[in-house]
Design a protein around this nucleic acid. Structure first.
Lengths: 241, 241
DNA sequence: ACGATTTTGTTCTCTCGTTCACAAACTCCT
DNA sequence: AGGAGTTTGTGAACGAGAGAACAAAATCGT
């Protein structure tokens, strides 16, 4: 009853709207989605932010704040309706529609990706496999046949593909990337160990095994060193040169 | 030329020491390392922060700050000695020693990882492949033979493996993770779409295809929507191309 | 020898992300 | 109906990361 200026609270759906969900939040929504799906499969109807947070491995306050960017989908004193929230997140991410994906570079990794069932399970459909090696063109993988890099443009234009996956060696990555962008692909997932240059309008995410391992190695080394000599490690430095 | 109190600059090597390189910086060091290697292979002897930054796809101020956490390895007015800096970063990350890696889960992805040459190229050596499926045990992949999950403990203890890669289905991930931790593995790279619970002393990094695609899908959807109904900055976005 | 030029290392500032803490809103029990 | 107990949504404090800007330190030309 005090609450002097509490009447500004008319900022509803539209205004809170879809403009500007923080990038860090976007990156966590898929995790929440997975947690919700898992709960839903176990016939859980309602979940508190605490439940969800622990299933997703995050802090509950952060989860609540993340969800608040989407709208007010919870009920105080109760929690979140699992299926309703799941749908809302799926809609926000864009999983209510299907996305066509092309994979370029059918080596070890590209082949594994082509066979990966997790793609299709959510709304991602691999519509083409591309490789520059004539040896590989024509090879059949699952439902698809490997096409030549020369046909990339034609294929993309006929299928309206918006996501491209690059699984080529580093040397070929930028060229392939340019071609994908040229053909209108707006988002690229890059597995090649190379830095890609793209126009601002194109999104790139990279997945780099080697880098992940190196980060882990750094921490491992740190743990080991910490135990060995625990003052300053100038000893190690002194050995060099 | 005012500069009243500039005489505090006696904080040198020892004090700036290796304790506490920001996580964001650690994640970029491997990228710098790659850029340096590439330059070195082209016989470039010296590179400025600007050169390196553009090769790594980052801002030059950020690169300089990152490198300053390691020590003072540049020369003002000149730049960085490519090979020297490369060695310093490699040492900092821990690539001057070899790291043993075990891969658990030899499905599509696990097999691709086992064949991936990028592992060995830097100091990572795959010493064992593990799978729970008796069908797969005994299969030969490259130099290695797939071992049973039951033998995991024995293998790890005999080889002193510090990094484990999980490429199993989601359902098996936590169990495998527990076993790896139990056997003394300190760092885990998780490809399974699952949240892993581990003790604080263990580092986990996850690579999740499905999540990456969903993040891209979100941005794609946003671009599409932005063109349809415009307000705010959609104009700028629309202006591209 | 010295000023002009280059380029690093670092300080300052701003933005973004995370966590805390609590009022508001809901349920349940008596 | 009303009070006790839960749980959300969010304002505010806090911390980490990124970029701009500049003094310090090196080279080069004269």
């Amino acid at each position: 009853m005090v609450t002097a200026g509490s009447r500004k609270g008319s900022r509803s759906h539209v205004e809170r709207a879809e403009r500007g969900i923080p990038e860090a939040t976007v990156a966590r929504l898929p995790i929440y989605l997975r947690a919700l799906t898992s709960l839903g499969d176990r016939d859980v109807v309602t979940a508190s932010s605490e439940d969800l947070a622990s299933a997703a491995g995050v802090n509950s306050a952060m989860l609540r704040k993340d969800l608040s960017y989407l709208g007010t989908y919870g009920t105080r004193g109760v929690g979140y309706d699992v299926n309703y929230l799941r749908y809302q997140i799926a809609r926000e991410i864009g999983l209510t529609q299907d996305w066509s994906v092309v994979i370029v570079g059918i080596g070890n990794l590209g082949r594994a990706l082509a066979n990966y069932s997790g793609f299709a399970s959510r709304g991602f459909q691999v519509v083409a496999l591309i490789d520059s090696d004539p040896e590989r063109v024509g090879e059949r993988i699952g439902e698809l046949t490997v096409s030549s890099l020369d046909d990339l443009d034609a294929i993309l234009r006929s299928e309206s593909v918006s996501i491209g996956v690059i699984a080529t060696p580093a040397g070929a990555a930028q060229d392939v990337c340019d071609r994908l962008v040229e053909a209108g692909v707006g988002s690229i997932l890059n597995f090649a160990p190379a830095v890609l240059a793209v126009p601002d309008s194109v999104d790139v995410r990279k997945v780099d095994l080697s880098i992940e391992l190196q980060i882990l190695a750094y921490h491992e080394q740190r743990k080991a060193h910490g135990l060995a000599l625990l003052s300053d490690d100038t000893v190690a430095t002194a050995g060099v040169l």
